[in-house]
Amino acid sequence: MATAEKKKKFRGVVYVAPERCKGCAICVEFCPTGAITMSDRFNSKGYHYPEFTYPDKCTGCGLCGMYCPDFAIYGFREKIGEGA
Protein backbone atom coordinates (compact mmCIF):
# COMPACT_ATOMS: atom_id res chain seq x y z
CA MET A 1 0.00 0.00 0.00
CA ALA A 2 2.72 2.39 0.98
CA THR A 3 4.54 1.67 -2.27
CA ALA A 4 1.41 2.27 -4.32
CA GLU A 5 0.91 5.62 -2.60
CA LYS A 6 4.36 6.72 -3.59
CA LYS A 7 3.72 5.94 -7.26
CA LYS A 8 0.67 8.22 -7.43
CA LYS A 9 1.52 11.33 -9.38
CA PHE A 10 -1.88 12.98 -8.98
CA ARG A 11 -4.47 13.19 -6.31
CA GLY A 12 -8.09 14.15 -6.47
CA VAL A 13 -9.24 17.24 -4.62
CA VAL A 14 -12.81 18.31 -3.94
CA TYR A 15 -13.93 21.66 -2.64
CA VAL A 16 -17.41 22.40 -1.39
CA ALA A 17 -19.23 25.70 -0.87
CA PRO A 18 -21.88 24.61 1.64
CA GLU A 19 -23.86 27.85 1.45
CA ARG A 20 -24.54 27.38 -2.26
CA CYS A 21 -25.70 23.79 -1.86
CA LYS A 22 -29.35 22.77 -2.09
CA GLY A 23 -28.77 19.21 -1.04
CA CYS A 24 -29.76 17.36 -4.21
CA ALA A 25 -26.96 14.81 -3.63
CA ILE A 26 -26.40 14.34 -7.36
CA CYS A 27 -22.65 14.68 -6.75
CA VAL A 28 -22.73 11.87 -4.22
CA GLU A 29 -24.83 9.65 -6.46
CA PHE A 30 -22.71 10.10 -9.57
CA CYS A 31 -19.27 10.17 -7.97
CA PRO A 32 -17.70 7.13 -9.65
CA THR A 33 -15.59 6.19 -6.62
CA GLY A 34 -17.80 7.12 -3.70
CA ALA A 35 -15.41 9.74 -2.38
CA ILE A 36 -18.13 12.15 -1.25
CA THR A 37 -20.97 11.69 1.20
CA MET A 38 -23.74 13.92 2.45
CA SER A 39 -22.98 15.66 5.70
CA ASP A 40 -25.22 15.36 8.72
CA ARG A 41 -24.86 19.09 9.16
CA PHE A 42 -27.10 21.73 7.65
CA ASN A 43 -26.24 24.93 5.88
CA SER A 44 -28.02 28.17 6.80
CA LYS A 45 -30.89 27.39 4.44
CA GLY A 46 -31.37 23.99 6.04
CA TYR A 47 -29.87 21.78 3.38
CA HIS A 48 -27.46 18.94 3.95
CA TYR A 49 -24.37 19.43 1.84
CA PRO A 50 -21.65 17.09 0.60
CA GLU A 51 -18.39 16.40 2.34
CA PHE A 52 -15.16 15.14 0.88
CA THR A 53 -15.15 12.10 3.14
CA TYR A 54 -12.78 9.74 1.35
CA PRO A 55 -10.02 11.74 -0.34
CA ASP A 56 -8.08 8.54 -0.99
CA LYS A 57 -10.83 7.31 -3.25
CA CYS A 58 -10.99 10.47 -5.34
CA THR A 59 -9.48 10.32 -8.80
CA GLY A 60 -10.10 14.00 -9.46
CA CYS A 61 -12.34 13.22 -12.43
CA GLY A 62 -14.31 16.41 -11.81
CA LEU A 63 -17.72 14.91 -12.51
CA CYS A 64 -19.09 16.26 -9.22
CA GLY A 65 -18.39 19.81 -10.41
CA MET A 66 -19.83 19.06 -13.84
CA TYR A 67 -23.10 17.80 -12.38
CA CYS A 68 -23.61 20.20 -9.49
CA PRO A 69 -26.55 22.41 -10.46
CA ASP A 70 -25.63 24.90 -7.77
CA PHE A 71 -21.93 25.46 -8.53
CA ALA A 72 -21.35 24.32 -4.96
CA ILE A 73 -18.74 21.63 -5.49
CA TYR A 74 -15.61 21.38 -7.55
CA GLY A 75 -13.37 18.40 -7.99
CA PHE A 76 -10.12 18.33 -9.88
CA ARG A 77 -6.84 16.50 -10.23
CA GLU A 78 -3.86 18.00 -8.47
CA LYS A 79 -0.28 17.08 -9.24
CA ILE A 80 1.48 15.69 -6.22
CA GLY A 81 4.61 17.69 -5.77
CA GLU A 82 7.98 16.03 -5.18
CA GLY A 83 8.38 14.93 -1.63
CA ALA A 84 4.66 15.05 -1.02
Binding site: Y15, Y47, P69, F71
Partner: peptide, 27 residues
Protein backbone atom coordinates in the same frame (compact mmCIF):
# COMPACT_ATOMS: atom_id res chain seq x y z
CA UNK B 1 -13.00 25.33 1.22
CA UNK B 2 -14.95 28.13 -0.44
CA UNK B 3 -11.79 29.67 -1.86
CA UNK B 4 -11.12 26.38 -3.62
CA UNK B 5 -14.44 26.63 -5.41
CA UNK B 6 -13.05 29.62 -7.27
CA UNK B 7 -10.86 27.24 -9.23
CA UNK B 8 -13.98 25.81 -10.84
CA UNK B 9 -13.96 26.86 -14.51
CA UNK B 10 -17.57 27.95 -14.21
CA UNK B 11 -16.71 30.58 -11.58
CA UNK B 12 -15.44 33.24 -13.95
CA UNK B 13 -18.71 32.87 -15.86
CA UNK B 14 -20.87 33.52 -12.84
CA UNK B 15 -22.22 36.63 -11.22
CA UNK B 16 -21.32 35.07 -7.90
CA UNK B 17 -22.86 37.98 -6.03
CA UNK B 18 -26.22 36.63 -7.22
CA UNK B 19 -25.78 33.10 -5.82
CA UNK B 20 -27.47 30.98 -4.65
CA UNK B 21 -29.63 31.06 -7.77
CA UNK B 22 -33.39 30.58 -8.07
CA UNK B 23 -33.25 27.07 -9.51
CA UNK B 24 -34.59 24.29 -7.33
CA UNK B 25 -32.58 21.54 -5.74
CA UNK B 26 -31.76 18.99 -8.44
CA UNK B 27 -32.82 21.19 -11.35
Amino acid sequence: VVEGIKENPVEEFLRTDRLPHVWCSGC
